[in-house]
Design a protein around this nucleic acid. Structure first.
Lengths: 340, 340
DNA sequence: ATGAAAGCGCTAACAA
DNA sequence: TTGTTAGCGCTTTCAT
């Protein structure tokens, strides 16, 4: 099963390899007659470009790499889908990597993407500080934009959502629903998402005079399991706050599940909010009130920034872009809505 | 930001490029002294292999491609994770593509993977027949194994689960729980998963004398939405069967949700089963009884077959392997378990 | 409009 | 043990 090369096509068409290349890549002038001959020969032989060879020659792979903290988190897969879509045109392909929330694996992935000469990288860093060196190093070598999360000590483009504004939306809504005290369940403060969200939570809680018992700030990881653990801890400690604000939907799903199990009614006894608006958010019992991130827009912006960076050259191109899009509050049944 | 090449390293170390190559790839004999010199030079220059060049030379990319019908289906992402893990050793990378359940996109992805010279491909074909040509063509060019689903009219390796046996497990369990009639909610019969599952369902239903009203076979797609639609249709038509067997967990999640909404108790009024045991299956209300596929094993087998195929050469290597692993029944709260 | 030839960065014969 | 050299398949000057 030898692969067909350009020179076999050339031979069959009775022309030079240069001509074949010109025809197939549509660059350079070729007479219609020869064009046809070449195309037919290629067709008959079942020719397909060897993009490795092409990439070596062009030093462009028409490939972008994407690294996410966890491919099993529906929010990220949805982001991936959107990026793929945004890339979809132009025949560019996405090289997807899962960092398993581990900065070391992440660093390896990044290095491997660089080695594979992707044209650019979109990364949502796993860790708020540990991801720094690898991300910066990578960004020094090729166009890179951070998505959703970002890592301190780096100067790269970023696009995501205004977490602080999102938290304000949530807190205001909870406050209207009568909440006068709240808990926060998030991941350890090792990534920007939680940091920002927690900061936003705290600030607005203070402004609204919503009490936050220090014991009611529970930090674990982004998972249903952690949500369950945290909720059980809150419930068993007694003194449940009026609301439990979760750093993402997975956590919130775990929290509501445990509430159900303990017979703690949501939202009348305690209001619960999520974040991300993953598909399963609406499937919770009750359906989750959450924050919707404009994923398509985030993805589109990321691709745009990447293209921009590629064009401008990795060299100096002024300060990096920092694009915070506007989140939306999606009110469902896990909170007390206005009318109630 | 020029990339460092091997010859720059060679120059700095005062040796030939061949020597550098030998040191860096660990092949061929090099004296310890020179080794050190080369490594230091490489280090100082921040050298990284250009795997494009290496791939062109070796006609191996140390990369395998994976194509799944939908990256937003947790079952497939979980499969991806497992494959990645199985590959994880040996420094091989996974090139992940989402076919969006569209055979045309799928064909493009496959072609692109071939063009990119991946060493092998793992694919779960979207469509039971339409995916055929592309899959076969791809398999003719390089090692390919089908995962979970397979497509008719192809002769490639396959590894998945014994769907018929799984359905027997489910039906027997439902029967024990008192079910004497059942509905089936699946996707249109355009992929092997549904085909097999439905066949298994029907056969065992017959054997157990479980009645299946032809009106109670509802075919749509693998999504929560479809589960909801189908359940609503069943409920509104009256004459609910004793059990609703779903072709996957997403559908089952939709079904149970609608039952809840309509006040139809699961499992006392109607038993519901899923398939795949995705993480969210246990989060349903009630938690889903479902089929667990040995994903890690499936992934490991797939990788093994791929390696085998690579070694043997794509040429004749006897009949293709067809490995059906044994599924497990996971009993939760959506069915009437033995004791009840 | 077409062809000859150089070379992208790497590795593997083959020599020395 | 080390260096020289010939390509992998493609694109792109530079001639013609």
């Amino acid at each position: 099963m030898q692969r067909v090369t350009i020179s076999q096509v050339a031979e069959r068409a009775g022309v030079s390899t240069a001509t074949v290349s010109r025809v197939l890549s549509g660059r350079g002038p070729v007479s219609p007659g020869v064009q046809r001959k070449v195309r037919r020969a290629a067709e008959e032989l079942g020719y397909q470009v060897n993009s490795i060879a092409r990439a070596l020659r062009n030093s462009r792979t028409d490939t972008v790499g994407m690294v996410v903290p966890s491919i099993s988190n529906p929010f990220f897969t949805s982001l991936v889908e959107n990026v793929e879509h945004a890339l979809g045109q132009e025949g560019r392909e996405l090289f997807l990597c899962d960092a398993r929330s581990d900065p070391e694996i992440e660093a390896r992935r990044l290095a491997s993407l660089v080695a594979r000469n992707v044209d650019g990288i979109i990364v949502s860093p796993s860790h708020g500080t540990l991801s720094g060196p690898a991300v910066q190093e990578t960004a020094d070598r090729l166009p890179l934009v951070q998505l959703d999360r970002f890592v301190g000590g780096t100067s790269t483009d970023w696009v995501g959502v205004n977490d602080v504004a999102a938290m304000r939306l949530i807190m205001d809504h909870l406050h209207e629903g009568g909440a006068r005290s709240a808990a926060f369940v998030g991941s350890l403060l090792t990534n920007s998402s939680t940091e920002q969200r927690f900061a936003g939570f705290q600030r607005r809680a203070e402004e609204l005079n919503i009490g936050v018992d220090p014991e009611h700030v529970l930090l674990g990881d982004y998972s249903v399991d952690w949500g369950e653990t945290a909720a059980a801890r809150l419930i068993e400690a007694g003194e449940l706050p009026d609301a439990i604000v979760c750093a993402d939907d997975l956590i919130a799903l775990g929290v509501t599940r445990v509430c159900r199990r303990y017979g703690v009614d949501v939202p009348t006894r305690v209001q619960v909010t999520g974040y991300d608006n993953i598909e399963f958010a609406r499937l919770g019992e009750p359906a989750l009130t959450t924050i919707d991130q404009p994923r398509a827009q985030i993805a589109a912006e990321a691709v745009r920034l990447l293209d921009l960076a590629s064009r401008t050259g990795t060299a100096e191109r002024g300060p990096s872009a920092h694009i915070a899009l506007v989140p939306t509050l999606v009110v469902r049944d896990s909170t007390v809505s206005g009318g109630a």
